[in-house]
Write a protein that binds this DNA or RNA. Structure first.
Lengths: 213, 213
DNA sequence: TCCAATTTTGACCAGTTAGTCAAGAAATTT
DNA sequence: AAATTTCTTGACTAACTGGTCAAAATTGGA
């Protein structure tokens, strides 16, 4: 019996399947994140994955299919630390931890951040449903948590939604605008202590603000 | 005498020239900002500008030429308010004004913001030189100003460069991630009071932080 | 009005791209 | 080792893309 194209939906994955799918998604992440969906070419992804385009299309039947896979993976990774914000934790400590994790993610996988940013900038054609359902539910939930913290006087009174946006914005900026930051800071941005420096500054600004105390 | 293609570099511009060039750059801004450089097609830009592709290419001889024009214009607009930060002004007031202007820009021309973001995310192939020369000089200058303010105790002690990044990140987020914000806030994000609400929240977070006082 | 310059267009071309197909190579099972 | 399944590839196609060209339509000044 001829197995469906690369065991499409079946759970069983051979060693080769697993390896090649990983190679492809990694390559796709690189290419999509710099060239965008339309700008990326299947040929280029295949080349970077070290195989022929035909072979790549054996594993993922279409360009959109690869993109979908990669972006879904990205979204999952992106969501996890946000979901872990603990309503029973110390507010400042919880947010400090979340900000730190997000900054770390921007440092270790800027491509994923850029891929997501790109998708949103295009009007989120693929993840719009995710945004309005799962993400919205989660954001509403966490915004309520932040609201409670504010009511308890454990956090300054700011709109919880905009606070979430501010955290996302500042942390992802280091991935999405990496080229600009590198150009403006020169060698400093590549040095070893940079991420600690950035982390310290971002935390200081978001937690304490810039008004002198 | 046959005039060079659409008076290429000559200063003289007929009424038709002026009108059509404006139509083209506006259309190009829309298309480039959503589809990216490679994803955008000359045909699509022409269609949106309401003319044939051939005619568009009469005014701008190549796709790259249009892109260059649009992005240079964008960069100029983007730089102006930053350059206006006054070393002799009241620090908090100066930064408040700058943040407010940038938020307004995100609201009135989100396409320009997305176009620039897109260019940077691609590794800034076209504006890299601008970043490392003119922009770097200006940022160094303003960072020094902020440093002085901090030394005078008129601003909390934060790294000036990262402060600038934080301001850029938070303000542009409202343009670049418009789709996400709309999806998460629903009707609220389209309402009339929204930009004031966003502005208030961003200013509150950046100026005062989220730690309760 | 008449004429030259400007503006606009359809037909066309060469290069690129996503995806197909049939056949060969490699791995796995029997 | 033979048979079968899985994996890989080169050759190909149809659609699309950036750009050219020559000719037609329009504009504006004399």
């Amino acid at each position: 019996m001829a197995a469906g194209a690369a065991q499409a939906r079946s759970g069983s994955r051979s060693r080769i399947q697993t390896e090649n799918r990983a190679l492809i998604t990694q390559a796709a992440l690189d290419v999509f994140s710099t060239d965008g969906y339309r700008g990326a070419t299947v040929d280029r992804i295949a080349e970077r994955a070290g195989m022929s385009k035909t072979n790549l299309l054996y594993y993922y039947p279409s360009k959109e299919d690869i993109y979908r896979t990669v972006i879904e993976q990205t979204v999952e990774d992106w969501l996890r630390p946000f979901a872990q914000i603990d309503p029973d934790g110390e507010p400042i400590e919880e947010l400090r931890r979340y900000i730190t994790v997000k900054l770390k993610m921007s440092e270790t996988s800027p491509e994923a951040s850029r891929l997501f940013a790109n998708e949103i900038q295009r009007g989120a054609p693929l993840v719009m449903e995710f945004l309005t359902t799962r993400l919205k539910a989660l954001v509403d939930e966490k915004a309520a948590v932040i609201g409670t913290w504010i009511d308890q006087g454990r956090l300054a009174p700011v709109d919880p939604y905009h606070l979430i946006f501010a955290i996302w914005a500042t942390t992802q900026h280091y991935a999405d605008f990496e080229a600009q930051i590198g150009a403006l800071l020169g060698s400093q941005a590549k040095g070893p202590g940079f991420s600690e420096q950035a982390s310290h500054a971002v935390l200081s600004i978001l937690l304490n603000g810039i008004r002198p105390r």
